[in-house]
């Protein structure tokens, strides 16, 4: 074999272990799941014994009111948490992007919630939401208000888990927004001050537009992540009362373990995967477009 050929092969040899791990650890389970979604499969059967039913599981799901409600809950939950977390997170970043004594301590405090294990967050909030001994109702009682059935009322439960999620994940937006803010061109902001922009006008006309690429990616990341939330809600409400907080990932786990419908659960997972894949592709394409536009512009400028 020619030396040049060996040289050309070298990178692939280095890539091989990673590729092998990816095939075994990622593609195999996904393929398995896709195959399973075409089966009528009970956990007591081996996979070979299950009946092949084609697309029946997918069709069943589309006609299943409970699944549709669960999808609706997921979409509502995700839409609300992402919007609220973006607003609060970016707002906080804009507020705390300054050099005041003690600001770095404050910043560190703000990102603590993100570092707590989800199960712990769930337990913590369940305790705080406790109808009689929880801090919220205790406080309400002290102030002379009626207690609120945080987790036991189907009207309140979704709001309650949304609040907990906002508490946990706003810091994520906050640190990314802060990083974006601090990498803005400093002199452009100074130029804006000289041009007469007030603090608010600097935010609206300079800071936010320049942060936009980072914010779009951040929002998409958060959106993808919020579709997959499980533990916190599992611990707090386990999907109840009724189906009011039964987000998709919870429904999938219940379909598999309680209803013992592995095929159906797999089909549901694939629907979720499809949504996430779409979002990821959007993000990827957006990044590519921004990047290639920047590159084209740079090239043009250099030629000029």
């Amino acid at each position: 074999m020619a030396a040049a050929q060996i040289k050309r092969m070298t990178p692939y040899m280095f890539l091989a272990p990673a590729a092998a791990i990816m095939i075994v650890g990622l593609l195999y389970p996904i393929g398995y799941m896709v195959y399973a979604s075409f089966l009528d499969w009970n956990p007591s059967q081996r996979i070979g014994e299950a009946d092949f039913v084609g697309l029946r599981n997918y069709v069943t799901l589309l006609n299943d009111a409970a699944f549709r409600e669960s999808a609706g809950v997921t979409l509502t939950f995700s839409a609300i948490v992402v919007v609220v977390e973006m607003v609060i997170g970016v707002g906080l970043a804009l507020l705390l992007d300054r050099n005041i004594r003690g600001i770095s301590v404050l910043r560190t405090l703000f990102i603590l919630p993100m570092m707590i294990a989800p199960i712990v967050v769930g337990l913590m909030w369940r305790y705080m939401y406790h109808p009689s001994v929880g801090i919220f109702n205790q406080t309400l009682k002290e102030w002379g208000f009626e207690p609120i059935p945080w987790l036991s009322d189907s009207g309140w439960a979704l709001t309650s888990i949304i609040i907990a999620d906002i508490w946990q994940w706003t810091p994520f937006i906050f640190i990314l927004a802060l990083a974006a803010l601090q990498s803005l061109p400093r002199t452009s902001l100074e130029a804006a001050r000289i041009d007469g922009a007030s603090g608010w006008q600097q935010i609206v006309y300079i800071k936010l537009p320049l942060m936009m690429p980072v914010l779009v990616v951040t929002a998409l990341l958060r959106l993808i992540d919020s579709f997959k939330v499980l533990e916190v809600i599992l611990v707090m409400t386990n999907g109840g009362p009724g189906l009011s907080t039964e987000i998709l990932s919870l429904r999938i786990s219940r379909t598999a373990s309680e209803f013992r419908e592995l095929g159906l659960a797999a089909a549901m997972s694939n629907y979720l995967l499809l949504i996430l894949l779409t979002l990821t592709v959007i993000m990827f394409v957006y990044n590519k477009v921004v990047e290639s536009r920047a590159q084209a512009i740079r090239q043009q400028a250099e030629e000029a």
């Binding site: 002199t187 452009s188 130029a191 001050r193 000289i194």
Partner: peptide, 19 residues
């Protein structure tokens, strides 16, 4: 504030608004 001083400034790195 800078805006109340009736000044205009040209910066070394030009400080244009990129967007």
């Amino acid at each position: 504030e800078p805006k109340d001083r009736d000044i205009a400034m040209v910066f070394q790195d030009y400080a244009l608004y990129p967007h």
